[in-house]
Amino acid sequence: MNRYAIRAIYMFEMSRTFRTLLQSIASPVISTSLYFVVFGSAIGHRIPQVEGVTYAAFIIPGLTMLSLLNESISNASLGIYLPRFTGTIFEVLSAPISHLELIAGYVGAAASKSVLLGAIILITARLFVPYSIAHPIWMLIFLGLTAVTFSLFGFIIGIWADGFEKLQLVPMLIVTPLTFLGGSFYSIKMLPPIWQKITLFNPVVYLVSGFRWSFYGASDVGVEVSASMTLVFFMICVVAARWILTTGYRLKP
């Protein structure tokens, strides 16, 4: 295994993060705080408790997931798209590294950054709402698995995209709507029965539900189902990424 290469890519990506620290960390923190001010404090007081917790506390896991998904995708897709765009990817492609090592470097860095960000959001939220975490280990597992899965998804988008517009397209058109409709701000039990069924096709429902369960012990769908669905999506991304790298799709003519 080429440890030095994984380390080099990982450190390179992390240093890119720290170079743009302000926009990498500050902007999600600010936007999350705004959500709390608006939904948690201003509107939240008029909403009764949801599943046994205050509305402000209820939205914390969903909000964290929202940021986690968006950041994982945008970090990972930019991380691989930029070198493709500038041409510096040639060096990585000519290096003695396996596909797995390449993914480990890029996706590992993007996922680390997302986890870091998730932690910062949770700490920020603590300033607004006194919440507690019922299953901390499960919380970390969901956080990590989601960060890795969606970084992998972002990596795939970064290879597929052939312009900056496309880079924004998937997060804008698919991920954000799915997250908003995935029960970040409501329990799907609040939906009419038919929509409760339809919404089960939305993978984000499982992520948010499982993550929220790790906080408050209550969930829309069973935690085992949540965990398996997340794993399934993870496996799909792994297979897709491997296919991309073995066929050289968009990377090697």
Partner: peptide, 14 residues
Amino acid sequence: WATVSFSRGLFGKP
């Protein structure tokens, strides 16, 4: 310096 160090690492050298 950072970019040459990166290259060396990428090629698996300490």
